[in-house]
Design a protein around this nucleic acid. Sequence first.
DNA 1: TCACCAAACTAACAAGTGTTAGTTTAGTGT
DNA 2: ACACTAAACTAACACTTGTTAGTTTGGTGA
Lengths: 189, 189
Amino acid sequence: MKQETRKDEIINTAAKLFKEKGYSAVTMRDLATAMGIKAASLYNHINSKQEILKAIIISIAEEFTSGMNSIIQSEASSISKLESIVALHVNITSNNTNGMASLNNDWMHLEDQLDYYLQLRNEYEANFLGIINEGVTASEIKNSNPEIIMFSMLTTLRSLYLWIPKKEDLNAKNLGQSLSEVLISGINN
Amino acid sequence: MKQETRKDEIINTAAKLFKEKGYSAVTMRDLATAMGIKAASLYNHINSKQEILKAIIISIAEEFTSGMNSIIQSEASSISKLESIVALHVNITSNNTNGMASLNNDWMHLEDQLDYYLQLRNEYEANFLGIINEGVTASEIKNSNPEIIMFSMLTTLRSLYLWIPKKEDLNAKNLGQSLSEVLISGINN
DNA sequence: TCACCAAACTAACAAGTGTTAGTTTAGTGT
DNA sequence: ACACTAAACTAACACTTGTTAGTTTGGTGA
């Protein structure tokens, strides 16, 4: 719980603006105005616009990688692992909805870190698919198209950042449970 | 099947670029280079960059509205209506994956047409939710949170544009069926 | 051959872009 | 009183942005 530095404030404000208009459409002058200062003053705290994007995206991507590694190493059933993935997304997204928007929509504007980001994402998706395949083999999961299953779950989870801010009445635990139910058991009676 | 005009070519090329980098990050010079001409030449065919975005997004949004109206007026069961919605998304997205990317990611950069777009989207979501609620009342659909159900389905469907281009082996009909199965019946055995 | 026209071109514009350099301000510990 | 420092400022830079004006090109029908 260390306190927020001025640099953190700038990054958080930037994340909020990036969520609204996207990285490319937000100028350093926009960001400065939102902070109540002049654009040049931002450079007392950060080195470049690109550095801000990197700070937002890479830290979140590494959180996902770390969470996924814990889940894979656990001894739980495949369905239970999928429920943990849902909870992972709900938790990370709840703590940083603005940053998740950048991760989803502005990752392609990463420069030096683009390859690293893509590597993390590919590994994450491969692990996700691995869990589903494992569940199919163990007959826990229907033997339909595993990629469609992953696609459906992952895109829903990736879009949580759009939805969580509107539903403050649901806490993370309840939302995770409801979502797991819908994603895993379906909606029909 | 009328043939493609030069203006159409520009709009389609723009949609492709917008998908890759987003509206704000694509310059008129980028677009011109992709067309093999100079930026100024674009203005022989279009009036502004904004007009291109409008042409891409609004036509698709109106397709969705029109499709949804047909579904609502049908006498089918709620589950069957949801299957039709899945098919609607698969069809529209298959025909214009690039345009769907702009609709999803760049709608906020619409200027004059922003309010109109938001109106269409709100109506669409209200109709979608109405079908789910109707299904809950008729005991076709589980009595869990209808908004979570809509969120889950709609975000999956909205992300199809990312996924369809990678899976050319699946035709629209098969993909629609598989996706309906996953979304409606779940994935567990 | 001539007029026409779609569609390209060159040249330029005013405004906005990220960023740098150097300076001022106000508060803190000695 | 003094030096130090975090954090703001003004002014400017080189470049990029969307767009306009006027011109050239090459093909088509009369």
